[in-house]
């Protein structure tokens, strides 16, 4: 007989603006400095710095895609807390609006000389590119399940 193991992780994604996600999932894949790490239930306690990238939360039925910015991840006793300055769930994103935003940001980048603002815009552009990638991934998996 197999030991009765917990098969779920409690996942919480918090940003300064709001709590993006709160719920139980089966696994999480998230971007850290050296690449991606996957977390399954009963993973060893971890504290990680996360970098901008794509975060995938998988449940038995489906997987949801998020784009996260800089931040931290704490995994302790089957609970994962993700604290990041920016996060968005991909399902709500529209490709057209994304491209529009990207063009606006690029134009702003040409206009401004301020170093801090330029950095902010570059960061937003980076997140935007990840959103695009994540959207493609999301659409692909959606098609394959059909």
């Amino acid at each position: 007989m197999k030991e009765d193991v917990k098969k779920e992780i409690y996942l919480e994604i918090v940003t300064p603006v709001k709590v993006i996600y709160r719920g139980y999932v089966n696994s999480v894949i998230l971007p850290v400095e050296d690449g991606m790490i996957g977390i399954l239930p009963r993973h060893v306690n971890t504290l990680a710095r996360i970098v901008p990238g794509i975060l995938i939360a998988k449940t038995n039925k489906a997987s949801s895609y998020f784009v996260v910015g800089k931040g931290f991840m704490e995994f302790i006793r089957d609970k994962a807390y993700i604290i990041t300055d920016e996060a968005e769930i991909i399902e709500k994103i529209n490709l057209d609006t994304l491209e529009k935003e990207e063009n606006e940001l690029k134009e702003k980048l040409k206009e401004t000389q301020d170093k801090d603002i330029r950095e902010e815009i570059k960061y937003a552009l980076l997140l935007n590119s990840y959103k695009k990638k994540a959207l493609q991934l999301f659409l692909k998996t959606k098609d394959s399940t059909k």
């Binding site: 850290v32 400095e33 050296d34 060893v44 971890t46 504290l47 990680a48 710095r49």
Partner: peptide, 11 residues
């Protein structure tokens, strides 16, 4: 036991 990624000082 706790692991730190990439390292404790950099977090």
């Amino acid at each position: 036991f706790f692991i730190f990624l990439p390292s404790l000082s950099s977090i």
